[in-house]
């Protein structure tokens, strides 16, 4: 299973489970009808078809019900998303620079690293930049992704709640070694982080 290291990830997963539930229901419904009809109204069993030109009531029902369902799903996705889109003002800022084919992280005191060290339970805002082509900053365990492009001011944020180390991918195809362009996010305790930040 995929790690669930932020509160946001938990929200996304809850939404996912609801939507998967709705989808499985409709898939099972349609598939059951297809198979049942194909057997029950098979030519051998039912040599004579009955013409049915349509049914206005049914058309209305199967227009309105899906409309309500998709509007509900839309709202679920939007309400999670808007949380991700508004980083808290007090967030600690880390600059992430993508280039073919590596990540570089720069902290407020000028310290640079190619592994992303972050303290646990703290709001972190990542400002994204690229020196060449489009890349994308992707941490599956946090369920966040944002493109890193030259001369654009993209950013994202997270608050990691679980200590550990997680994979950080480049998700936008960027040429020869795109698939090697991954590193790690290390979520450590506040003390450990401060020691690391102020060490040489």
């Amino acid at each position: 299973m995929i790690a669930q290291a932020t509160n946001f990830a938990q929200n996304v997963d809850n939404t996912f489970i609801i939507i998967v539930g709705i989808c499985v229901f409709f898939l099972v419904l349609i598939t059951t009808l297809l198979i049942t009809f194909a057997i029950k109204y098979n030519k051998k069993r039912n040599p004579k078809a009955v013409n049915i030109h349509g049914n206005i009531k049914l058309e209305i029902i199967w227009t309105i019900i899906p409309t309500l369902i998709v509007l509900y799903i839309f709202w679920l996705g939007w309400s999670d998303y808007i949380e991700l889109a508004t980083p808290p003002k007090d967030a600690m800022v880390i600059n992430a620079t993508a280039s073919m084919w590596q990540w570089k992280f720069t902290y407020s005191n000028g310290k640079q690293a190619d592994t992303l060290y972050v303290p646990v339970n703290e709001n972190i805002k990542i400002k994204l930049n690229s020196t060449d082509v489009s890349h994308s900053f992707y941490i599956p365990a946090f369920r966040i992704k944002r493109d890193a492009m030259p001369n654009t001011n993209n950013s994202t944020w997270f608050n990691a709640e679980k200590l550990g180390s997680y994979t950080l991918f480049c998700a936008e195809y960027c040429g020869l070694n795109h698939s090697k362009m991954y590193t790690e996010v290390k979520v450590v305790t506040k003390d450990k982080f401060n020691n690391w930040l102020n060490s040489e």
């Binding site: 929200n11 996304v12 939404t15 996912f16 939507i19 799903i73 839309f74 679920l76 996705g77 939007w78 999670d80 998303y81 991700l84 599956p140 369920r143 966040i144 992704k145 944002r146």
Partner: peptide
């Protein structure tokens, strides 16, 4: 199409 899922 669901915004939060698409981000992931």
């Amino acid at each position: 199409g669901t915004l939060s899922l698409d981000i992931h």
